[in-house]
């Protein structure tokens, strides 16, 4: 079966900088895939290339089997791209804005008002349709941007940081909208820094760092590998470097990293071993004052696969 989106060997260079290096992944219909990576990892470049706003130096992208390079106009009809910030037109109401883009995508006179009403209703902006664009809040702007993206009923949605700047309630509402869209059979590729948001909605993730895909796959499969490990958080009264030195000598400790004033430890072992670890710390004259553990989640997965380096 042809994937809805297939990125094949995508490479994009800006002078000496390789923004995306031989990236390959795919997204199926009705699936939500998270696209995660540190700032400057190449997420936006990849998304812009998929949306036909940029041209790769190498590789190709296929939407329902059609190349975006060979048939950009045709593939644009199947893609909805939502950038991280909504551009606003001065002296324009929400309805006029949507009507303009509805005309641009070629909706006829009969279909246009109906479709604009549908997307306004879906994004819960119906009552605000006469409001000027420049008076909208961030949450409303994001909704409007999504409404515009949905006008031509695209099969694939590319959402670049859609939850950035939203308050907690707006984020929850936005998440519900994305779920509703996936249930309609749309494929969704979504980038976000808020990994807890993604972990609740994503079927799969693509992790990118320094332009290269470092991991790609279904969330449960990826987390399965590291979920056999426990993620411990330990804080002691003693300085962190002493704790780090002590942890390095204890068996079962796989990885450590500093977080706040304590250490996060990726640990292999059962509850007995964890108790032994605590005992070993006390024996080394370290006094734990905070300790808890949990299974690895998407955030841990991301941190485990990336080093946080910028290009």
């Amino acid at each position: 079966m042809t994937a809805l989106l297939e990125v094949r060997g995508l490479t994009r260079k800006f002078g000496q900088l390789t923004a995306v290096n031989n990236a390959s992944f795919s997204v199926g219909a009705g699936e939500i895939w998270g696209f995660i990576g540190p700032n400057g990892a190449g997420k936006t470049t990849t998304m812009r290339t998929i949306a036909t706003l940029d041209i790769p130096d190498q590789g190709d992208i296929f939407i329902e089997g059609r190349s975006v390079l060979v048939e950009p106009q045709r593939t644009r009809q199947r893609i909805g791209f939502m950038p991280d910030a909504l551009g606003t037109y001065a002296d324009t109401t929400i309805y006029e804005y949507l009507d303009f883009f509805a005309r641009a995508v070629g909706l006829s006179q009969e279909l246009r008002p109906q479709r604009v009403r549908e997307v306004l209703s879906f994004t819960d902006l119906g009552k605000l349709c006469d409001r000027m664009m420049d008076s909208l809040s961030k949450g409303m702007s994001q909704r409007l941007c999504l409404a515009k993206t949905l006008l031509h009923d695209p099969a694939l949605l590319i959402l670049d940081e859609p939850a950035a700047g939203l308050d907690p309630r707006a984020r929850v509402e936005f998440r519900e909208l994305i779920r509703a869209l996936a249930s309609q059979g749309k494929g969704i590729l979504i980038s976000s820094h808020i990994l807890s948001e993604l972990s609740e909605v994503c079927d799969g993730v693509v992790v990118i760092e320094k332009g290269s895909i470092v991991r790609e796959g279904r969330v449960h499969e990826l987390t399965k590998n590291i979920s056999e490990h426990e993620m411990l958080f330990i804080r002691t009264l003693e300085p962190v470097h002493e704790l780090e030195r002590a942890l390095a000598e204890i068996p079962g400790v796989l990885k450590t990293r500093q977080e706040k004033s304590g250490m996060v430890v990726e640990f292999q072992g059962e509850e007995d071993a964890i108790a032994d670890l605590l005992q070993a710390l006390v024996q080394r004259n370290l006094r734990p004052i905070e300790f808890h553990w949990h299974k690895a989640d998407l955030e841990e997965l991301f941190l485990s696969f990336t080093e946080g380096n910028l290009q």
């Binding site: 812009r48 949306a51 036909t52 706003l53 106009q73 644009r76 009809q77 893609i79 791209f81 950038p83 910030a85 909504l86 551009g87 606003t88 037109y89 001065a90 883009f101 641009a104 995508v105 070629g106 515009k148 031509h152």
Partner: peptide, 18 residues
């Protein structure tokens, strides 16, 4: 020039209009 300044340029370019 407002299309670039107001971030509407990209939306316009992929809107289906040549």
């Amino acid at each position: 020039s407002a299309e670039r300044e107001e971030n509407t340029f990209d939306a316009l370019m992929i809107s289906g209009l040549s």
